[in-house]
Nucleic acid binder design. Structure first.
Lengths: 132, 132
DNA sequence: CTCACTTTTGTAATGATTACATTTTAATTA
DNA sequence: TAATTAAAATGTAATCATTACAAAAGTGAG
């Protein structure tokens, strides 16, 4: 958990124990977990943990620009990589991989009219191991 | 509703009255409606209409490759344009616009490993009228 | 120590989607 | 045409991630 309190503070987030735990989890598990997955791992070591807290914490992280929210299959997934990149999701097992593809820039005429805040580029298909 | 029965038949779908109505709606309203929107419009003229039927019908259309499903904001939206293109969604009013951008092709090494079935490129932001 | 504020928690509500059983409609055959 | 069978449409209840909200616990300044 080295330096995590610093990172949180840099993003204007008071580093409570739980927030540090959640961020630490995200840092060590970059497989785009959803709330349930984070909860299941942290709950055993934090017996009083509530799922609502995970929701609150992640909302705060997103609001402060610390993590990116990725809605896939009616579920929110979280990613500490905030630089633009693409994703692949296997429709069989649900796993999400990062892809080093930068989403194309919008035509200037749209940029002038709209205020673009986020881009999401996702490829759906069946991963190697699920094809067998 | 000219020729709609033909289009359905071409996709191996038996053209029932309701299926034709749903497809006709999609053809005339290309603003990527969700189930609720379609239901609200069709229900008055088809008093016995059930929402489940709309769900069933759209599932069938997607399965037969007649329409594309687009999950945005935890909701399924439907699009009769099946050629690859991008979307813009306003996070304030929810409106969805088509963009003439072709999502970038995947690196051959990924294409070899995975079986890609769908690509989704979406820009999120605030549209012109919501910025006021 | 006390008070005010923030963080965390628990429960109940929401809302889109699905499961499933039943009813209605259409098509086929005798 | 009536009977039989399959397909389509319907209604209700269940599911599940997320949110709303109020209460409890923790933290820090004076």
């Amino acid at each position: 958990m080295n330096g995590i309190d610093q990172i949180l503070r840099q993003h204007d987030i008071k580093p409570s124990y739980l927030r540090m735990k959640v961020f630490d989890y995200l840092k060590q598990h970059m497989d785009h977990p959803d709330v349930d997955k984070i909860y299941k791992v942290l709950a055993p070591e934090i017996p009083t943990l509530s799922k609502t807290t995970i929701y609150n914490t992640l909302h705060l992280f997103v609001e402060k620009g610390l993590v990116t929210e990725l809605i896939l299959n009616h579920q929110k997934h979280y990613d500490i990589r905030t630089i633009p990149h693409a994703h692949f999701q296997c429709t069989a097992c649900g796993q999400i991989d990062d892809l080093e593809i930068i989403p194309p820039a919008l035509d200037p005429k749209y940029v002038a009219a709209w205020q673009i805040n986020q881009v999401q580029l996702t490829y759906f298909g069946v991963c190697a191991s699920c094809q067998k």
